[in-house]
Computed example of a mutant assay.
Amino acid sequence: MSLLTQLNEDLKTAMKARNKMDLTVVRSLKAAVMNEQIELGHDLTPDEEVAVVSRGLKQRRESLSEFENAGREDLIADTKAEIEVVSRYMPEQMSAEEVTKVVKETAEAVGATSKGDFGKLMGAVMPKVKGKADGKLVNQAVKDLLA
């Protein structure tokens, strides 16, 4: 089932249940997916769908960080709830151990051994873990390996 189909089904369910939080978040995700389709001019591939959902999740996490820094308790709870809803549409995330394993294997494959190889290693690792691991986690794993 495509992401757009899943979003439409969840939209109907949220409407029937009168769940305003789910309804708002699913509508925004659906709009983002449809805007991406229009921009690219074709139906999205699964990788492109994951990229759209990842962007939405990243935006909400950044907002959560800003709200926490500003002490906005009223917005923190809502943003956490939005993150939970968006996370439902993400593929299962890799653990830190799995990310470290992928980083080590890729480092051996590309011959990365020093801090100067950081960009080369990140460029090789990110396509392998795209949508399955947080970029900050990958960045830290690469830094730890090359340190």
Rank of each mutant, 00 (worst) to 15 (best):
E105F: 09
A112V: 09
P127F: 07
K115S: 02
G123Q: 00
I83Q: 06
A133P: 05
K132G: 05
S65N: 11
Q93I: 06
A124Y: 10
A96E: 15
S95K: 05
L75I: 02
S114Y: 06
R72D: 15
V85Q: 03
E66L: 15
G71A: 11
A81T: 11
V102A: 11
R60G: 04
K80E: 14
G135W: 08
A133L: 09
A141M: 12
K80P: 01
R55C: 04
M122A: 12
S54I: 00
L57S: 06
A133S: 10
G131R: 06
M126I: 13
E92P: 01
V129I: 13
T113G: 06
R60Y: 00
K128P: 05
G56W: 00
A70L: 13
T79F: 00
K115C: 04
I76W: 04
T106K: 07
E97K: 05
D134S: 08
A96D: 13
E98Q: 15
D134R: 05
T79M: 01
S63V: 00
A77L: 04
N139R: 14
T113Q: 11
L75D: 13
F118M: 03
G116C: 01
V129W: 04
P127V: 11
L75P: 00
R60W: 05
D134N: 15
I83W: 13
S87K: 13
G116A: 12
E92C: 00
A109T: 10
P91V: 05
N69T: 06
A112Q: 08
R55Y: 12
L137M: 15
L121I: 05
V125N: 10
E97H: 04
G116S: 09
P127Y: 10
R60V: 01
D74C: 03
K128S: 04
I83T: 08
N139E: 15
Q140G: 08
A107D: 08
G135I: 07
K120H: 12
R55M: 11
A109H: 02
E97A: 15
M122K: 06
K120W: 04
R88C: 06
I76Q: 08
Y89M: 04
G123E: 02
P127A: 10
F118Y: 15
A81K: 13
M122G: 02
E68S: 09
S65A: 12
E73K: 14
L137N: 03
R88D: 10
I76K: 10
N69C: 03
A124V: 09
Q93W: 11
I76G: 00
K132T: 09
E82D: 15
A141L: 11
V129H: 09
A141D: 03
E108C: 03
V125Y: 04
M126A: 09
A70H: 09
Q93A: 14
E92Q: 14
G123S: 03
R88P: 02
V129F: 01
E73H: 08
Q59K: 10
A133F: 06
P127K: 10
G131Y: 01
E108I: 05
A112L: 13
D74L: 05
S95M: 05
A96P: 00
V99E: 07
A112T: 07
L121A: 07
K136I: 08
V86K: 08
V129Q: 10
E98Y: 07
G116D: 14
N69W: 09
I76F: 01
K104W: 03
T106F: 08
T113F: 07
G135F: 14
